[in-house]
Design a protein around this nucleic acid. Sequence first.
DNA 1: GTGAAAGCGCTAACAA
DNA 2: TTGTTAGCGCTTTCAC
Lengths: 344, 344
Amino acid sequence: MCLNDMKKKVTLKQIAKELDVSVSTVSKALKDSPEIGQETIDKVKAFAKLYNYKPNNIAVSLQNRKTKNIAVIIPEIVHHFFTKVISGIEKHANERGYNVIVCLSNEDFEKEVINMETLANGSIDGFIISLSKGTQRKKDYHHLREVINQGMPLVMFDRVTDEIYCDKVVVDDGRGAYNAVRHMVRSGCKRIALVTTEEYLSVGNYRTLGYKNALEDAGIPIDEKLIVRIDDINCEKQIFELFRTQLFDGLLCVNEYFAVAALREARKRNIDVPRQLSIVAFSDGILAQNSFPRLTTVNQHGFEIGETSAKLLIDKLEEVEDDSHYRTEVIKTSLIERESTNPV
Amino acid sequence: MCLNDMKKKVTLKQIAKELDVSVSTVSKALKDSPEIGQETIDKVKAFAKLYNYKPNNIAVSLQNRKTKNIAVIIPEIVHHFFTKVISGIEKHANERGYNVIVCLSNEDFEKEVINMETLANGSIDGFIISLSKGTQRKKDYHHLREVINQGMPLVMFDRVTDEIYCDKVVVDDGRGAYNAVRHMVRSGCKRIALVTTEEYLSVGNYRTLGYKNALEDAGIPIDEKLIVRIDDINCEKQIFELFRTQLFDGLLCVNEYFAVAALREARKRNIDVPRQLSIVAFSDGILAQNSFPRLTTVNQHGFEIGETSAKLLIDKLEEVEDDSHYRTEVIKTSLIERESTNPV
DNA sequence: GTGAAAGCGCTAACAA
DNA sequence: TTGTTAGCGCTTTCAC
């Protein structure tokens, strides 16, 4: 065979014909079936190697109603947290022989629905999803119910909902926020502000709760004026207003973007971080790691969340008896102390 | 039917049996075939809708030897540039009815090969790839040749090689570096340093070339002592050494990590950016956008690169006559002026 | 108008 | 030890 021959995929059928045996013989031989004589096995394998035979995944999938593909639907890929999660999913899935199909909902309900519907028709074996803002706002989960009803396993992570019964992987957001605030209190902060998101986002709520609990436990009254809910559009403006109208010596931000914006505002006002103001950010991403000063963060362990999600899903896919009980894994956060807070 | 029935996927066969017609009639009816009577069409469609029939993708794929999936193999997902590219690919691919399978090579040659081999067997219709460092170092491209020989379209972007003939999407790295340096020269810089990567990386080389050309054209002699090649491990150390041993008033970094590290070093040495030192970074990512001062960057337009790559691939997949001529699209960079350089 | 049959590439139960 | 057959879910040609 000429080297620059375009060698199209070889099929079992072709090999069978060439070797003058049946297709099933070839199929079995390639699997070292004890039914087949050693001689034939050798012959078939040699030929298969020569022609670089690889079974057609699609045909195999059709046959055993399994694709070895899992779909991940995330709101946004540019968030460092989600890229970490994907890496974790990839790692675990690949180790177990699964491919990962990544889809972006762009925080949009419609796109989330469409993504699920186009994939749920045989292309994949199961879903891993973090809800889009649109879905959380709308509280419409029919698309999730549908795939579950079809018997397709679904794992939700981070942005989850109680209304759907399935395996879940969540961050202990409340505890993370609590620990962050407690740390600031212990290091001397008296008035701690919070920059969070709008209310319909589940994670933002948990974090707010943790913040409030920590203050209460420390005997510090909660001042609603110190809590600002960013509406995404006017991040800088709202943070500016907070600095302009309030005095505070501690600040918890529910993501690193808010934190970096706060850092910049502090810089402009010549407020020294951490001497005059401590800052802790949720999500230990590249921004937090590379800012000046580097930020103390609540690490959400995105990679681990991804691994755990993939594990739950594939376990469910491969479990023999399907005992349909659902688990919720809580991934602990940890506080990474850097230069934006004072040592306690 | 009870609402919380677990309604498994319905097949054509089942519909056919229920309606007491043949499978082919159902198939045709659902496609509004003129062969089928209107009455039957209505009946079938109503039934299909009721049972929420969706064709099985796998079976369809097997039938027409098309999966409507494309695979993207990238070295790393945590680089902002690549996430932008993925978003661009996703957008274009979804618009044309394709799903995107994302695989990470983790800069490793072996994983790149394995990824390609497991997917090349029917799971996907084509590849979009940016070479891993490992592959570029090894210069072993047999896996790429193989899929091409099998008749599977392949598009390379950003990290490409001349040794493989296929469609390519590249950044005009040389020009981008040239413009960046020229900008610094015009704004008054006399001694401009370069922080780049090791030599086997194609993009690093092009950028270095652009840097040198710009200096030459400006009549500034090239001083090799001002060029530092980071080996990934000792980024901070090597940048520290540059600052310690050399004097310079301009700095071009081939990625934003290097730039932010330089910014930090400058800060520690009380070097004012941009008054005493101008900095330009390749890649307009979140780090560059959120640093203090915000960095002037060479924007590589990752999103557009993704869109273009997807377009080239799908065009090739869907083109009627396969005229096998290959195109290389060059995406222009643009300089985004921010606060780390002086106006010219 | 409708249906039977072949086939996409593979597996597996059953025959020989 | 090997081959035949049926079938995964669908499309499409060709008879009826």
